[in-house]
Design a binder for these strands. Sequence first.
RNA 1: UCCCCUGUAGCUCAGUCGGUAGAGCAGUUGACUGUUAAUCAAUUGGUCGCAAGUUCGAGUCUUGCCGGGGGAGCCA
Length: 461
Amino acid sequence: MKRIPVKNLLNSKEEINQLRVCGWIRTKREGKGICFAEVNDGSSQKNIQLVVEENADGYADFLKCGTGSSVSALGSLVKSPAAGQAYEVKVSSIEILGDAPADTYPLQKKRHSFEFLREIAHLRPRTNTFGAVFRVRNSLAAAVHSFFQQNDFYWIHTPIITASDCEGAGEMFRVTTLDMKNPPFKDGRINFEDDFFGRESHLTVSGQLEGELFATALGKIYTFGPTFRAENSNTSRHLAEFWMIEPEAAFSTLEDNADLAEDFLKYIFKYVLDNNPDEMKFFDDFVQKGVINRLEKIASSSFERLSYTDAVKILETSGESFDYPVKWGIDLQSEHERYLTEKKFSVPVIVTDYPKEIKAFYMRLNDDQKTVRAMDVLVAGVGEIIGGSEREYRLDVLEKRMKEMNLDPADYWWYLDTRRFGSVPHSGFGLGFERAMLFITGMQNIRDVIPFPRTPGNALF
RNA sequence: UCCCCUGUAGCUCAGUCGGUAGAGCAGUUGACUGUUAAUCAAUUGGUCGCAAGUUCGAGUCUUGCCGGGGGAGCCA
């Protein structure tokens, strides 16, 4: 008999005779001669209630099986006589596909701490919270592609392994096939000419430079893939392996870039609200009160935009006592960003035109010669969710900036070719996919919004 | 990497003044004809993270190591 997903059963507007339902038991309650079980098959946030009475085939085995066991049941969808659910499955026959012995199965029919669940990351998708997280993660990925495809951006698969050691966005993981116990030496140093790629190679820290190559040919592109940073960061907002979305558009100014970032964020927030109402309600009820309201409000209001210089003025005259005093030229600290987006404006804030000393070499220099066309999008709770800029497209200025920052333009010859041949103003940004997940779900730790978190000292699963 | 907190039953935690450990949940057994993280009764379960030290005596105090969490920096 055809299996009907739990989601379809819950959406049914009428009784269904003769069906099969399969899933994992989330919780079970026994009465005399009757047993109720909540079963989930992953298709939905909500469970379907199975009602198994003692005359059903397999009743005795069913009584003995534990939380987490997988079952296959035959029966009918009927109106429930009790409160709590409109319909339930009256079971005529039930088979235990795989028992989960109660004395050894780590998940119980109760709430566990996220810390504990992180230690059993291979089983945590079977919980309500992580089921919701990963269904939303899927939706969010679909939303990303949907937004860019609708806006005529091409998805470019930038490389995961890069042989250019000069991306400059952070510490890199080395990729090598050399024998680490006995590497080849030449002139007292390891000879990477003998390595797989004939030179030192690493995992990518950003697809931006490659993205610029394609944006200056295809016009509008985006990347969406894994990114790696070997930084020793131990925070609830950093991962060693994370997913990043990096749109890049030719003939685009910083203002266009900020518009794109704002439209993009609003679109993906709305997409998840529309497509995952049950999951969002779960987060609102059990993870962070008010997440739905916050997202709805942001999706329909304007982001605040101001320059770094104005932001510094606001912070200086705020009357707040910050641990790090504010003055023009410093990088904004978490406490400053939090004040701006949580206290002062209560909406996402786009800060632009930062001092050139605290930003990357490729950002376009303003006419004041002091600031660059950079932007950070700050949101409550997670802080910087997007970092981007208009790129420096004037070859001479770019080379001068690289030398100021002790970078050798010769190492970037292929990147600089975009400025040598048909250079155009262009801009783009990077969005941390997991940070968007944090903001949307209200989850507090970035390790809990990626299936298998990689952090310093942790890559078990 | 730095600062702070923390580690006690399968899970979540309590443990006062230093005197050899306790609750809820889960598990097990039993009761209950419709439960909603069911309820009621009984019951199993601990090398108190590891190592050393102080002490007649350490879950409790001290030191070191290891794990976890929060904050900071770096950033997305």
